[in-house]
């Protein structure tokens, strides 16, 4: 935790009635990071994001958003924050462009003289310019999602908060969101992106926090998080026992035979040494797989539960 965190919370807690939905979390999103805020459905991600944005009052704990205390000074912080919260929401009978005009008109910090140009640039950046005059109700889910992202692009931002930005998008749309996140990060914008689909965002994240049943069970750089889980080597061959013996000799741990060969944890052993040894021993290797641990593995290791099990 440093003063340069874009978002920092301390003991942040929210109870709805007797249910503790967010349980004493200490979030630290460093400036310039792409922070993957991950967790299964119902784990408290959206409620946390609503508290960060001043929409929901915390039961306990404190929040600093771009250095400003929330609740209290969110009106000072929010002009520099773009947000997509729990899906898009617009006036159905206004066009995409009219919806953006309305939100820009509500912004006391935006320049009316440049509104039309900024709105068209934002629409263009998300590929909606051809549909700008269509009513929002005629937009597909993907177009709606992109319009919500366009809102965040109307004025320069220091922080983007994207809650499940790939929800409802096809694989192409998901790739577009990922490349948008990457381009925002290149511009120096801090990105806080939540998802219940680990694989969709883990590739773009520099930092990761994992939520489970209202608690932040782990947080750190992507490399630190993955270190919880070791890289595994899997060899497919018709001589499993021989291969397993060789792997043990090389110093791999937890070596076991599998239906199609053998597998073990690499530890400090370089993968190419394993390949060379197999060739040297004359084994017929049909496939050699070095499996970097997925976040899914990390999550299962931390909670003992599959990721899609709701908290």
């Amino acid at each position: 935790m440093t003063a340069s965190d874009a978002v920092r919370t301390s003991g942040l807690t929210k109870r709805f009635g007797s249910q503790t939905v967010v349980d004493a979390i200490d979030l630290a999103v460093p400036r310039g990071s792409v922070y993957g805020f991950l967790g299964p459905n119902g784990s408290g991600k959206t409620t946390t994001i609503r508290m960060l944005l001043g929409l929901v009052t915390p039961t306990l704990g404190s929040i600093e958003l771009l250095g400003w205390p929330v609740p209290g000074r969110e009106v000072d912080a929010l002009p520099r924050v773009g947000a997509l919260v729990e899906g898009p929401a617009f006036h159905p009978y206004l066009s995409g462009r009219e919806n953006l005009h309305r939100l820009d008109a509500a912004d006391r910090t935006s320049d009316p003289a440049t509104a039309a140009r900024r709105i068209d640039e934002a629409l263009d950046r998300v590929g909606l310019l051809p549909a700008a005059r269509k009513r929002y109700r005629a937009y597909s889910l993907g177009m709606r999602q992109r319009l919500a992202i366009a809102v965040a692009l109307l004025t320069p931002k220091d922080l983007m908060v994207l809650d499940e930005p790939t929800n409802g998008l096809d694989p192409q749309g998901t790739r577009e969101v990922r490349s948008l996140i990457a381009s925002l990060a290149t511009d120096g914008t801090t990105v806080l992106v939540s998802s219940h689909l680990l694989s969709e965002v883990e590739q773009v994240c520099t930092h990761i926090g994992v939520m489970h049943a209202g608690r932040l069970i782990t947080q750190g750089t992507a490399a630190e998080i993955r270190r919880h889980q070791e890289t595994e080597a899997r060899i497919e061959t018709d001589q499993p026992d021989h291969t397993a013996r060789l792997m043990r000799e090389l110093g791999l741990r937890d070596v076991r035979t599998t239906p199609h060969g053998a597998a073990g944890r690499l530890g400090d052993v370089p993968p190419e040494k394993v390949v060379a040894a197999c060739v040297h021993a004359g084994l017929s290797v049909t496939r050699f797989i070095v499996d970097a641990p997925t976040l899914e593995d990390v999550f299962v290791a931390l909670t003992g539960e599959g990721f899609d099990v709701s908290g």
Partner: peptide, 11 residues
């Protein structure tokens, strides 16, 4: 409509 949350975060 849900537009309230987007007005409030404008802010």
């Amino acid at each position: 409509l849900g537009t309230l949350r987007y007005l409030l975060v404008v802010p």
